[in-house]
Design a binder for these strands. Structure first.
Lengths: 347, 347
DNA sequence: CATGCTTGCTTATCCGGTAAAGCGGTTGTT
DNA sequence: AACAACCGCTTTACCGGATAAGCAAGCATG
């Protein structure tokens, strides 16, 4: 460690210049690979800089050049902290993002907020203080109020959601409508005619899209009108919704859930109420995490690789940061039906 | 939005000063609640600043005062991205941290790295560029090389790990030794005399501590010498370790796992090999996430609330940032044995 | 009434970089 | 021969704040 001249880490450009026998300006040019210094001088400067362990002060640099270079990507999530830990989706999504960021030496700046207003505020703050070089935005609603704010901020952004919702921001999405349709057709083929859906909050865009596709598919196949129960995605509400559905007079023979947490909870409820799965009742989860393989019987699910999805989102953001907004985004692979033990032909 | 005089967001202190009819210096004093300006002037300055929507340039401020005020907490994890998504521990830990950060308007700067060297590098970078005001450090090894680096950085830090490992850094830990001892005694009381342990990497301090406590407890009770299989915490290696143990001549009648992922995998292996749990074999998990309640039979586990643990860590860090390093840290509640369906008296 | 102490504000620096202008000396242009 | 254009480097002027020093006016003190 003989290279550390100043263990305190207080080396400035002036000191490097002095030791190298040149001026501050030359050091600056040399360090930034700009023309204006001879190869010999450049080499000498770099050598001295390395010896002193000098690294340019980021604050000073961004102050003078107005070109801050941070390697952080922002992600604001407006959900309660508890849920983040419980829902496998977010963790896999985040690790997918991190897998791309890590190889590019970027970090993820993660913030949980209460509501959309706070989210916009946080985002603005990050933008102004140059703490992030881009951002990932999730959970779009219809006519999402964040869209104009994001556009005004001029920060590179990737929206996670269907183009109908993301107002022209570069987006990555899955074709939930197609997946739902596939699921409904599959259940109908198994003889089910009374379906139900345990969905997310109607305000959330992707939940609304799924509901619409669900209703359309049910109608298209002339099945009985389907009940749709909104939830907040939590296991508790998934359980409650299932309980309500199973207790009703005309109880459904198949239930589609909007995530795997609720499906797991729903399966427990069915067991607890003595409704046998899959002979009397079929259950189909969404977001196929390892949870689905652990239940008994294992949950059939609309499966997609959330890790890869997150990576895809991060990759698009990186490309936008590097080359500008060339790409308008693209759809990720449509979730695929993976039948396991909770779906079967109706007797 | 009439308050936005400059939509471009390019308001400087000079402009505020000019409009308020005072000097830059006065504006600075007024904005930082420092004495030296009359109440009337201060009020006028604040009013003008608000009208113009001025917010001090963070770079300039930190350049001149060397006292950057960012609301970010750092967390570097040296594990592969895939694992982050699969292990419930980290997600719950992170959400626990976020729960405290959110209420104080702080964000988490999260980075995945390959190895310890890179971790130190990232940490140094964050420190120098003033991107974080404190940091949480995990996965300590014996004689961890990060300790001197962290100490030199002078950044507020909370170490997650036993004080024996964290070299005097303020720490939060769980008494894993006591928990392991309890587990061994419990299994011995059920009649088990041949135990095995599927542990983490021996280099990891907490894994070593558990192994030591395990060996000591086994010896103390005069049980048969126990086999210890190291892993990388992944489900795959948990499965392989279990397979090896069950295939051996003198197969154990009880296995302790170092996390829940491996225990789940181990349970599958037992089923696949026709070893009935819990009649022939008892399994005990660590880090009791919801996974443990979903398996069949449900997994007995050494349970602790990881969410609360993460929150505790974050709270200590906040207090150190606010009031300095008064607290040397403390132990979190010791994990509690929760018997479910995978532990039973040996026949 | 001269002196010293506050009070309230301005001015001058400084933080550590970047970027443009300046400056001798050599070389190319017409 | 006169002039422009480079070269390689130094000077100088900022960037946008914080802060110490300076300074005039008001006020109490002896």
């Amino acid at each position: 460690m003989s290279s550390r001249a100043h263990p305190g880490g207080k080396v400035t450009i002036a000191e490097v210049a002095q030791r190298a026998g040149v001026s501050k300006g030359s050091v600056s040019l040399a360090m930034n690979d700009k023309p204006g210094v001879s190869a010999a001088t450049r080499e000498k400067i770099l050598k001295v800089a390395k010896e002193l362990g000098w690294l340019p002060n980021q604050a000073a640099r961004s102050l003078s050049s107005a070109t801050t270079q941070v390697n952080n990507i922002g992600l604001v999530i407006a959900r309660p902290a508890r849920m983040l830990g419980l829902e496998p989706f977010y963790m896999e999504f985040i690790s997918g993002i991190e897998s791309v960021l890590a190889e590019r030496s970027h970090s993820l700046l993660l913030r949980l907020v209460r509501d959309v207003d706070e989210e916009v505020e946080v985002h603005d703050g990050w933008g102004r203080s140059k703490q992030i070089s881009g951002s990932i935005v999730v959970d779009f609603t219809v006519d999402d109020p964040r869209i104009p704010a994001l556009r005004a901020s001029r920060l590179p952004v990737v929206a996670v959601g269907h183009p109908d919702l993301t107002g022209g921001l570069p987006s990555v999405w899955t074709d939930d409508g197609a997946a739902i349709t596939e699921a409904v057709h599959y259940l109908a083929a198994l003889g089910h005619r009374r379906l139900a859906r345990v969905g997310g909050p109607p305000s959330l865009g992707h939940s609304a899209i799924r509901t619409e596709a669900f209703v359309r598919a049910v109608a298209g196949l002339n099945l009985e009108p389907a009940r749709i129960v909104p939830t907040d995605f939590s296991g508790e509400q998934g359980a409650r919704a299932t309980r309500a559905l199973l207790a009703s007079a005309q109880r459904p023979t198949a239930i589609l859930y909007d995530n795997d947490i609720m499906a797991v909870a729903g399966l427990s409820v069915a067991t607890e109420m003595g409704v046998s799965v899959p002979t009397e009742l079929s259950l189909l989860a969404w977001d196929d995490s390892q949870l689905c393989r652990l239940t008994h019987p294992p949950l059939s699910a609309m499966s997609h690789d959330v890790f890869v999805f997150g990576a895809e989102v991060a990759r698009l953001l990186m490309s936008i940061i590097d080359h500008g907004e060339a790409d308008a985004g693209h759809a990720a692979p449509t979730p695929v039906l993976v039948p396991r033990g909770t779906t079967a032909r109706l007797r």
